[in-house]
Amino acid sequence: MLKQYSFEKTAVQTFAGNVSLAMRTENLQVFYGANHAMHDADLGFPKNQITALIGASGSGKSTYLRSLNRMNDGIATVTGKIWYHDVDINEPNVNIYEIRRHIGMVFQRPNPFAKSIRENIVYALKANGIKGKAELEERVETSLKGAALWDEVKDSLDKSALALSGGQQQRLCIARSIAMEPDVLLLDEPCSALDPISTVKVEETLLQLQKKYSIIIVTHNMQQAARVSSQCAFFHLGHVMEYTPTATMFSNPQIPATQDYISGSFG
């Protein structure tokens, strides 16, 4: 039997005015038809930090994450506000394509296009009007370097991306996202399909990337959350139970639900 935890007793940090936030949600609710999958999420994400979202399967992490760049459009009803540069991007009249250019996303299963490695990266750039050959080449190189893939593929950029290993594919997906030069990078369990060595590579990549980007990552792996993130939010049955600095959460969890979850005696 699942233990009952009170949704009244939560510990969610807010940030003082001097911390600049990449984005922030206010009273965010998500419904899949009648299924109320996300309740009242009020979270702020500091700039140039990695924030981890943890919680059991089905707790609403992906649901929340996908709302942030409007990937839930047409799938779920999302209410509440999502602040990005003082604009509520959850309004119906914002340009969702523009939002996704600034808030990139990497998915759980690597999903490279069935195109060459180079084309995977330049396709969306070209669609956005970047024409210059030199500029495209440069973006390919910097993004692949940023995703720690350059050395492995620099001689085979015209090979099909589907011929890469799973770990390489995932790093290609990260490269593809950062080639768009977004502000915020959303990652949904990016390492769950990867072996330990590839995982380490991706983690190193993320730690490098946080200098330029604000990163929000969903993970099931608590060591990973501890290794890479500065802030950590714990989700439970569609509620944010605790949101504290990662160090606090793992050394001194504020509420029983989090304690049980990170000690492994959950549920």
Binding site: M71, R100, M105, F107, A124, N128
Partner: peptide
């Protein structure tokens, strides 16, 4: 697969 669509959309296409 759906994930190909999501890949495209998430890049702002």
């Amino acid at each position: 697969p759906r994930n190909q669509r999501e890949a495209g959309l998430s890049l702002g296409l």
